[in-house]
Amino acid sequence: MRYVSIDNVETGQYLGKAIYSGNGTILLSAGVQLTVFMINTLNRIGVTMLYVQDEQYDDIELVEILSETTKQQIISEMSDTLDALRSGKEWSPSRISKSVDQLLEDVIGSREVQVQLTEIKTADNAAYMHAMNVCLLSSIIGMNIGLNRDQLWELGVGALLHDIGKLGGSDMLDQIPGSKMHHTWRGFELLKSRREFNLMIAHIALQHHERLDGSGQPRGLPGEEIHRYARIVAIANMYDNLITTKEHGGKGLLPHEACEEMMALSETTLDRELLVEFNRIVSIYPNGTGVRLSTRESGVVVRQHRGLPGRPVVRIVNGSGDAIEIKEIDLASATTVFIEAVMN
């Protein structure tokens, strides 16, 4: 399958990866044939990229860290939690805890997998997908730096609920320096009152927008005064926001562009050592991505190398019908060849 812009999807193509609704159920299943109505609807609900099947790349595997069961459980629990908070009802920390336990089981069982954030976001599921992605990335960084199981659980819960304070507030309140109405303060107050969670989890919500140079929100904490958990979540949060927000010409940045932008912020905004760990585990050219090489050949990324995110295997297909010529270039060994542009 290939990862393509919604603008380049054609009627009659088959969806390569399921799309979830806001409550965790499947909105469109993998394998469904896309109609004009479906494509227009996906465009309308905020989908910018998706996977489509392609017989020339039907062997490409999206190596998933999280099982479908885990993803549906997390999205459903986050949906229920935020709905309860919106309506002033009681919510269940124990169910959130179980969701994080399940995510950690998947993460620990896939420690050698390069992370590819392949879930398709819509206007309805974006908040839940964001929480899940930040939890996933944070947990893997935490595992790689040697956190134990209890520490990973604390980090995972805090990461999953890092934006819980956004409910009941507005973006305008976040612009007031030091305001106790900043969503980080509201999240802290919500979480510290739950006896099921320790105070460190609440501090992740409070500190994930602080900056190393002291210019962050809400308290302007510098350097080591920001807890390591919050510094991890800050990296995961920024990355997922950069690849999905529509502030850069109408769509999010490509993974490699987001990583470059984040590296430029190391030691002023983001922790450099943790950022290096992040760059080791994230795939900056996910499988299915169309690329142009420095040889002027165009192809599709088909495989990854753990620890070498910028040097995947690229398949190049020339010709058509019975005259098709296929070759693969492994950039880990073809050291003089590099990816020049993404062609989605």
Rank of each mutant, 00 (worst) to 15 (best):
Met1Ile: 08
Arg2Thr: 14
Ile6Glu: 01
Glu10His: 02
Ala18Asp: 07
Thr25Asn: 10
Gln33Val: 11
Met38Trp: 00
Leu42Tyr: 00
Arg44Val: 02
Met49Glu: 05
Gln53Tyr: 09
Asp58Glu: 14
Asp58Phe: 09
Asp59Trp: 01
Ile60Asp: 08
Leu62Tyr: 05
Ile65Tyr: 08
Thr70Asn: 11
Gln73Cys: 01
Gln73Asp: 13
Ile74Lys: 04
Ile74Glu: 02
Ile75Val: 15
Ser76Tyr: 11
Met78Glu: 06
Asp80Gln: 12
Arg86Phe: 02
Arg86Gln: 11
Gly88Leu: 10
Trp91Ile: 12
Ser92Val: 01
Pro93His: 06
Ser94Asn: 14
Ser97Arg: 15
Val100Asp: 11
Gln102Glu: 12
Glu105Ile: 09
Asp106Arg: 00
Gly109Gln: 13
Glu112Ile: 05
Gln114His: 06
Val115Phe: 00
Thr118Trp: 07
Thr118Asn: 14
Thr118Leu: 12
Glu119Ile: 06
Lys121Ile: 02
Tyr128Pro: 01
Leu137Tyr: 03
Ser139Gln: 08
Ile140Arg: 07
Ile141Ala: 01
Gly142Tyr: 12
Met143Ser: 14
Asp150Lys: 14
Gln151Ser: 07
Gln151Pro: 02
Leu152Asp: 08
Trp153Glu: 12
Leu155Trp: 13
Leu155Ser: 12
Gly156Leu: 03
Gly156Met: 09
Gly158Lys: 05
Gly158Thr: 13
His162Arg: 07
Gly169Trp: 09
Ser170Gln: 03
Leu173Val: 10
Gln175Phe: 02
Gln175Val: 00
Ile176Gln: 10
Gly178His: 06
His182Asp: 15
Thr184Gly: 15
Thr184Ile: 03
Thr184Ser: 14
Arg186Phe: 05
Arg186Ala: 07
Arg186Glu: 14
Leu190Asn: 06
Leu190Tyr: 07
Phe197Leu: 13
Leu199Thr: 14
His208Leu: 09
His209Met: 10
Asp213Gly: 04
Gly216His: 13
Glu224Gln: 14
Ile226Phe: 08
His227Arg: 12
His227Leu: 03
His227Gly: 15
Arg228His: 09
Arg231Gln: 11
Arg231Leu: 05
Ile235Val: 00
Asn241Met: 03
Ile243Tyr: 08
Ile243Val: 15
Thr244His: 14
His248Gln: 04
Ala258Asn: 05
Leu274Trp: 07
Val276Thr: 04
Asn279Gln: 12
Ile281Val: 13
Ile281Trp: 04
Ile284Pro: 01
Ile284Phe: 02
Tyr285Phe: 15
Pro286Asp: 00
Asn287Ala: 11
Val291Cys: 10
Val291Ile: 10
Arg292Glu: 13
Thr295Gly: 09
Val300Asp: 03
Arg303Asn: 11
Gln304Asn: 09
Asn318Gln: 15
Ser320Pro: 01
Ile324Trp: 06
Lys327Gln: 03
Asp330Trp: 01
Asp330Leu: 01
Ala334Trp: 03
Ala334Asp: 11
Ile339Asp: 07
Val342Cys: 06
Asn344Lys: 08
